[in-house]
């Protein structure tokens, strides 16, 4: 394996609410190589989303260590983490999470604007990204005017806008029918192959998981098993 871009070792995450203590992650070790597409699978409550949140720095951890690009997240301040996310990461969520008051293009522009890209350049890049996901003609529509599949493609365009090293996707097809799911996965796979970005995808759809390079199975907050997926084949097959 080449130098891993994500290195997690002994990650423990516990949620406490009043008297109930939930051990969401119980010492997870995971390494993801640059350019790899990893699917995290497992039943509900197995800790998939928690793991993704912790790996991406959205959530803190109680023990263990997470390194992204060899840099440990645990020592970073909230502001530094925000910066880090803005520069190196993209996110795709189950329910798209576009800002309803902005148009598709403006939503894609957000990470660019955040990174300090000038407005003309941001506009051009956003249009390119929308083009890549096949939605250039919907650029001026608001999220309410888009279908679920279209909205998710906008979300992907947004996640990829500032060309992040890692894209985190939490159930990207969870709210979509199978046809739309397929389209979304194709877009993700294409990006992964063409631009060499690392993808970590949480899903409980076997069809989606199978498309990844590697499938990590979780159960009760720990990694139960790992196996290779068939992602590369399916893309080349198309």
């Amino acid at each position: 394996m080449a130098d891993p871009i994500i290195q997690a070792s002994g990650v423990v995450k516990t949620y406490r609410s009043r008297d109930v203590v939930v051990e969401a992650l119980r010492g997870v070790d995971l390494q993801v190589a640059a350019g790899e597409m990893v699917a995290i699978m497992g039943p509900s409550g197995s800790g998939k989303t928690t793991l993704l949140n912790c790996l991406s720095g959205l959530d803190g951890i109680d023990a263990g260590d997470i390194k992204i690009n060899s840099r440990s997240l645990s020592g970073m301040s909230d502001n530094a983490l925000s910066d880090y996310r803005a520069r190196f990461m993209g996110f795709v969520f189950q329910s798209f999470n576009l800002l309803p008051v902005l148009s598709a293009r403006e939503n894609v522009e957000l990470p660019l604007v955040l990174a300090g890209v000038g407005s003309a350049a941001a506009k051009t890049t956003a249009m390119e990204k929308l083009e890549e996901v096949g939605l250039a003609d919907r650029a001026n529509h608001t999220p309410a005017e888009l279908s679920g599949g279209q909205a998710q493609r906008v979300a992907i365009a947004r996640a990829l806008a500032n060309e992040p090293a890692i894209v985190w996707a939490d159930e990207p097809t969870g709210n979509l029918d199978s046809e739309n799911s397929g389209e979304i996965m194709n877009v993700l796979l294409r990006m992964n192959r063409e631009q060499g970005q690392t993808f970590v995808i949480v899903t409980h759809s076997l069809e989606v998981g199978e498309l990844a390079d590697r499938i990590v199975n979780m159960r009760d907050g720990a990694i139960e098993s790992e196996r290779a997926g068939t992602g590369a084949n399916s893309v080349t097959a198309q």
Partner: peptide
């Protein structure tokens, strides 16, 4: 709430 979460996720600082 959710939109704020998303904005924080893509790199908006709390301030």
């Amino acid at each position: 709430r959710v939109s704020i979460g998303m904005m924080r996720a893509i790199g908006y600082k709390s301030r």
